[in-house]
């Protein structure tokens, strides 16, 4: 029991980190809380499904194209909608939430939800880890999640564009002053965040099927992780994913499956009451006097 809680807790934590990292990244760079995040996750699932089952593409190619497609949708979301309400956080949330809801309802309208719509796993196999049976997809997911987070760390610390991302997150005006275009960076941050939602979708969705609720569930989980960890904090995403991930598995094991959502909502509530900036959140620095 303990060993299975350890392993499934880790898997659940990685799933949470995977689903939250894109939301955190977009917010960290451009201060846009992308409430269409869950819808983009669902869209990625459908894009992959269409490419696989309707166009009969190669499995990996289909997943790759689905990720690229959703990244483009994310970029378009900024270029055509968010750019008009830039700097107004409430409007940004309303715009992204409205478009996200519209997208999910559109898919529902065409009846594109249900057990008929699922993605196949990478491989149908079961492994034994510490004597606990774990299917191949979940193991792959842990590896992919860890590699992705490492890759993101390298990207933001060693590439010009990654450093420009961090620079604009730290001081937008100073970054503009050295020629960094904030709209360009925000477009890229939406594209990258959306691509990460899509990656999470194509590796997590094979564990179940594509449901209308996936979108809103993913959004709540991502927000819970980001609020507990501290918005814009990469280390916070990892720590909060582990905390919520294990808390969910423990409560599911001892109380029941519906506690998964309760734990996430409780994490949001408790954080906002006791430490609103989250575990790793920072106080805003004073603006320059003009």
């Amino acid at each position: 029991m303990l060993r299975s809680i350890f392993i499934y807790g880790l898997i659940n934590s990685i799933i949470l980190a995977l689903t939250a990292v894109g939301f955190s990244l977009t917010y960290g760079i451009s201060r846009v809380a992308n409430f269409a995040y869950g819808a983009l996750y669902v869209l990625a699932g459908f894009a992959a499904w269409v490419l696989l089952h309707r166009l009969a593409l190669n499995y990996y190619l289909a997943l790759f194209l689905a990720v690229v497609f959703v990244a483009l949708v994310g970029a378009a979301l900024y270029r055509f909608a968010l750019i008009r309400v830039r700097g107004m956080p409430i409007s940004e949330i309303i715009v992204t939430f409205a478009l996200g809801t519209a997208l999910v309802e559109l898919l529902r309208f065409f009846g594109l939800f249900g057990s008929a719509y699922g993605l196949p796993p990478l491989r149908r196999a079961t492994l034994q880890l510490l004597g606990v049976p774990v299917d191949f997809q979940r193991v792959a997911l842990v590896v992919i999640g860890a590699v992705l987070i490492l890759a993101l760390w390298l990207f933001t610390h060693y590439t010009k564009i990654g450093l420009a991302f961090r620079a604009i997150a730290q001081d937008e005006q100073a970054a503009m002053m050295v020629g960094i275009d904030p709209d360009h960076m925000a477009t890229l941050s939406l594209a990258l965040g959306s691509a990460l939602a899509a990656v999470a979708a194509v590796v997590v969705l094979p564990l179940g099927y594509i449901a209308a609720e996936s979108g809103s569930n993913i959004l709540v989980f991502a927000i819970a992780v980001c609020i507990l960890g501290g918005l814009e904090s990469p280390a916070g995403v990892i720590v909060a994913s582990l905390l919520i991930g294990y808390a969910q598995i423990l409560s599911v094991a001892y109380f029941g499956p519906h506690y998964q959502m309760i734990v996430a909502l409780l994490a949001i509530l408790v954080t906002l009451v006791f430490r609103p900036s989250g575990l790793f959140g920072k106080q805003k620095e004073l603006e320059e006097r003009v």
Partner: peptide, 13 residues
Amino acid sequence: ARTFQTVRPFHHL
């Protein structure tokens, strides 16, 4: 290019 009255480096880089 310009400098700022109060220094504004990218503190965490």
